[in-house]
Amino acid sequence: METKRSVYLQDMDQVRKVFNKFDADGSGTISLTELIDVLKALGSYTSDDEVKRMMEEIDTDHDGLINWEEFSSFCKSSDEDSSRAEEDLKEAFDLYDQDKDGNISSTELHQILNRLGEKCSVQDCTKMIQSVDSDGDGFVSFQEFKIMMSRSSQPDA
């Protein structure tokens, strides 16, 4: 029986980029403050208690910081975690879908990437969207978003 890998952040380069975005001071760890700051930059209205619970779940050595190993391990969802991964993916999608219409536009993508410090134009974002826009409507739906997130994941050999 072939096991199905989760679509959530399986590509280690992508995971490293996300980790580096969270690790704002470049210390090699993510503090509670950095976690809160990134979530706020993304427009998330996650309560401080909820962020603390997230931190406790990811911080397996309980030192108050999330290191690379803990972060990458957390991002490697197993089959048992696939429903959580789907929920996490939906939350990520919802952060980009600023107007809550069920689609990500190039303008929405541009706004979020700029908030995260990425330097790209609306035209760059349009090209990114075109690369995954399977129905040609000019937007990324949740289904297309899931496909985009899974494209770079490779099955274990």
Rank of each mutant, 00 (worst) to 15 (best):
E2T: 15
E2N: 14
K4W: 10
V7I: 10
Y8I: 02
Q10A: 10
D11P: 09
M12V: 14
D13C: 10
D13E: 15
Q14W: 05
Q14I: 08
R16K: 12
R16E: 15
N20T: 10
N20A: 12
K21W: 02
K21H: 04
D23E: 07
D23I: 15
D23W: 06
A24W: 02
A24F: 07
D25L: 05
D25P: 10
D25K: 11
D25I: 04
G26E: 12
T29V: 06
S31A: 02
S31K: 02
L32W: 01
T33G: 10
E34M: 05
L35D: 03
L35Q: 03
D37F: 01
V38T: 11
L39E: 04
K40Q: 08
L42C: 06
S44V: 00
S44M: 03
Y45D: 13
T46S: 14
T46W: 02
T46E: 11
S47L: 02
D48R: 04
E50H: 03
V51Q: 02
V51P: 01
K52C: 02
R53C: 01
E57I: 00
E57T: 00
E57Y: 00
D61T: 01
D61S: 05
D63S: 04
I66A: 00
N67F: 07
W68P: 07
W68V: 07
E69Y: 02
E69F: 03
E69C: 02
E69D: 11
F71M: 02
S72H: 04
S73C: 05
K76V: 07
K76C: 05
D79H: 03
D79A: 10
E80Q: 09
D81V: 00
S82K: 11
E86D: 09
E86V: 00
D88C: 06
K90Y: 09
E91H: 07
A92L: 13
F93I: 04
F93D: 06
F93C: 03
Y96I: 11
D97A: 10
Q98W: 00
D99N: 15
K100V: 03
D101V: 01
G102M: 09
S106L: 04
S106K: 11
T107M: 14
E108V: 08
L109V: 13
H110R: 04
Q111G: 06
Q111C: 10
L113W: 07
L116I: 08
G117T: 07
C120Q: 14
S121T: 15
V122S: 13
C125D: 09
M128T: 08
M128L: 14
I129L: 13
I129W: 00
S131G: 12
V132A: 14
V132C: 11
D133G: 06
D133A: 11
S134T: 10
D135V: 07
D135G: 10
G136R: 09
G136W: 05
G138D: 11
F139Q: 15
V140T: 15
Q143D: 15
K146D: 06
S150I: 04
S150A: 15
S153K: 01
D156W: 03
A157C: 06
